[in-house]
Write a protein that binds this DNA or RNA. Structure first.
Length: 719
DNA sequence: TACGTTCTGT
């Protein structure tokens, strides 16, 4: 069949007008019936359509059957068509593997068609997307067999591939053995490879040695120094660039300054630069966001002439990082309402994290549906799967989280970690440890975060011996290095269980200086067990901490207050005041019909206030007649008993509970999230309330979950 | 068809 074979006009029109959607299959059927499916015109258009299909939302459904259909026709096709196909799939987020399948089909069935110099770059792109060094090496050996070693395009392609895998040894080997053909792109590629793997000095040696430099060489080495925080060096290279500085070098400098907290310098460059693009704006906005300066970030964001998905993601993750989760979700909402920019995987990870922290299950489910509808993959490098598991776990829907985990095609460390941690915070300590053991047998190697989950499980289950064992064997048996956070966990575990001296011993023998979390865990234990001696002993260390985090000072003050040492308590408070730090106010949130409502202690938003207060008062009376006695010993102000009770009855979690119960249907589950730890009285109160109401009540505090039902709590009153 | 800048979290 040749291009001159007549092709019916109506089929040709159909072929041209067909777009990569569901019409492809019927079109195929008609071509087969007409005996024209191998016609060069049909094949060419077919591959173009496949190329479209590869990025089409329906691609996961279409791409595979279509490509298989295509392979049946393979003997008739040319290298050119194969390359089109390979390129189509190499760009596909969903099926980069199909590229490799197409390649091996070309090798097997290509007949006289052989891979050419254009075949390999696409293949390499696919294998980089797959993060598959093995396939990459296979392809490289094919290249060597077919004598492309003197083609500089092909060489550069593989240099870039090895660099992207972080395999600088192979890259360097190829570089050295290709010295005849190297061009400036080869040099730039290997320089960037070293920069990306953190070896700026090696990159610099190549940079100094290279015969000819272009703008890209300069921006690569500058971004190397800027990214590492060697900003003086970056600046001096930037100042003496012989070829014209371009936007990319300016942007590298801005982001270098910004990500190392030198915001005024970054801003100065940003203001001075002659032309800005969206990346310049994003670098500046993300600099502010990364450093917690969300007001400035927002100010600039609002001024942006155009915003892309990165701009929006910066703002969302920025708010999430300073724990302003409601604001993060609001920005996401704004993104959907006022822009045509589509969220990507990174956006979704940040949004899910915000939903998780707010226990905003309805919104989390919406995001899940969106991810499915847009065929985002759950097991890629962004760990969307882990983010979803984490979201469901933190919303108390552990069953869904577990189902999701099992449904994941590829499970990596993050997915296992999300499962283990999820089970741990939901009080399923044994299941969590079982999951960990399964992971050892048949899963990926565990990392530091895995052990945070394991130790958390032990803490919440009161499994002191197990916790000790895992802590002691973490590095010996599992080869995972102990970090500050693990010390925090073990101190919490031992302290909570009453082994305060042992916990204190660990704090004293730590190889690093204990941080807020570690000392806070010990102080928390002192508070639970009313141990004022240890609190006194570590008081100095606490006061030496950077005062930014008020948590420890507040805890100390509370410990003194609980022991009746009001003077010491006041001293702590005034210390806090002097340094201008404010205690993080207790707040709780609850989601109803997809809307998150937030409550601060003693302050219920109108118009519900009076109903909420009278419900609480009435409930307090009712419960007291059923045996509930307010736990006033945790009230840390110097008040008389009655005032203490009033103070308790306005705690934020009680306000949220009242608000939710007043509106909820009997079938609903009430999810309350508190930013601090639930207090003893609220815990007791809610346990009693759960006897009177059919709804399942979940309270997630800073530490863990409490599932209340029928007068009991899943934590068995141990927390 | 190959090289440089911006966004994830546990």
């Amino acid at each position: 069949m040749t291009p001159t074979t007549p092709f019916p006009r109506h089929l040709e029109t159909l072929l041209r007008s067909c777009c990569a959607g569901h019409h492809l299959r019927p079109l195929f059927a008609r071509l087969i019936v007409a005996g024209l499916v191998r016609h060069p015109l049909a094949l060419r258009r077919l591959v173009e359509l496949l190329a479209l299909a590869a990025n089409h939302p329906a691609a996961p459904l279409l791409a595979r059957p279509l490509s298989h259909l295509y392979f049946r026709l393979a003997p008739a096709s040319t290298t050119f068509l194969y390359n089109l196909l390979i390129r189509a799939f190499s760009r596909s987020r969903h099926h980069p593997t199909e590229s490799l399948v197409a390649f091996s089909s070309l090798l097997r069935h290509g007949g006289r068609s052989l891979p050419d110099r254009f075949t390999f770059p696409f293949l390499v792109k696919a294998s980089s997307n797959l993060n598959s060094p093995f396939e990459g090496q296979q392809i490289h050996s094919q290249v060597l067999k077919r004598g492309f070693q003197s083609d500089v395009y092909v060489v550069n392609t593989f240099l870039s591939m090895y660099s992207s895998f972080g395999d600088l040894a192979s890259a360097q080997k190829l570089f050295d053995s290709s010295s005849e053909v190297l061009d400036v792109v080869s040099w730039n590629t290997i320089i960037d490879g070293y920069v990306k793997s953190g070896a700026v000095e090696v990159a610099r040696r190549h940079f100094d040695e290279m015969p000819v430099r272009n703008e890209v060489s300069w921006s690569a080495i500058i971004s190397g120094y800027a990214g590492k925080g060697e900003l003086d060096m970056a600046q001096s290279l930037f100042d003496r660039m012989p070829v014209g500085r371009n936007i990319v070098t300016w942007n590298s400098m801005i982001s270098g300054f910004a990500r190392h907290g030198l915001l005024p310098l970054a801003r100065k460059l940003f203001d001075e630069m002659p032309v800005r693009n969206v990346v310049s704006w994003n670098s500046m906005v993300s600099g502010y966001a990364m450093n917690g300066e969300m007001d400035l970030a927002m100010e600039l964001f609002d001024l942006m002439p155009e915003r892309d998905v990165v701009s929006w993601s910066c703002m969302i993750s920025g708010y999430a990082q300073i724990n302003w989760y409601m604001e993060a979700l609001q920005i996401f909402k704004r993104m959907q309402l006022e822009s045509s920019v589509k969220p990507n995987e990174v956006t979704m990870v940040s949004v899910l994290s915000a939903c998780a922290h707010l226990a905003a299950l309805d919104q989390g489910k919406w995001v899940h549906a969106y991810i499915d509808k847009n065929h985002m993959t759950l097991d890629d490098d962004y760990n969307l799967g882990a983010a979803l598991i984490d979201m469901y776990a933190k919303c108390g829907s552990m069953e869904t989280a577990v189902e999701l985990f099992h449904a994941l095609a590829r499970k990596n460390v993050s997915s296992w970690n999300a499962l283990i941690t999820g089970l741990a915070i939901n009080g399923a300590a044994h299941e969590s440890l079982e999951a960990f053991e399964r992971m050892q047998r048949s899963g990926p190697k565990s990392n530091g975060i895995t052990f945070l989950g394991v130790l958390t499980a032990c803490t919440h289950g009161g499994l002191v011996d197990e916790g000790r064992w895992y802590f002691e064997n973490m590095s010996k048996v599992y080869g995972v290095q102990l970090e500050m956070k693990h010390y925090g966990c073990i101190v919490d575990l031992l302290g909570r269980a009453g082994f305060l001296e042992e916990a204190e011993g660990i704090v004293r023998s730590m190889p690093m200086k204990p941080d807020v979390m570690v000392l806070g865990a010990l102080l928390g234990a002192c508070r639970i067990h009313r141990d004022i001696r240890i609190a006194d002993r570590i008081r100095c260390q606490v006061l030496n901490l950077k005062p930014q985090q008020s948590g420890c000072h507040v805890l100390l003050s509370n410990i003194y207050a609980a022991a009746g040492r009001w003077d010491d308590a006041l001293e702590m408070r005034s210390l806090l005041k002097q340094s201008g730090i404010r205690k993080e106010p207790g707040s709780s949130s609850v989601e109803l019909d997809g809307v998150v409502y937030e409550f601060v202690a003693g302050d219920c938003p109108n118009p519900e206030a009076s109903t909420v207060y009278s419900w609480l008062d009435e409930m307090g009376r009712k419960l007291r007649s059923l045996g509930y006695l307010p736990v006033t010993e945790d009230v840390l102000l110097d008040l008389d008993e009655e005032d203490k009770e009033t103070c308790l009855s306005r705690h934020s979690e009680k306000l949220a509970l009242a608000f939710a119960l007043l509106r909820a249907t009997p079938q609903s589950t009430i999810r309350i999230v508190k930013n601090l730890r639930i207090c003893g009285d609220c815990h007791l109160f809610i346990r009693h309330v759960s006897k009177l109401y059919p709804q399942q009540i979940l309270v997630r505090d800073r530490i863990r979950f409490h599932h209340f039902k029928g007068g009991f709590c899943s934590c068995k009153d141990y927390w």
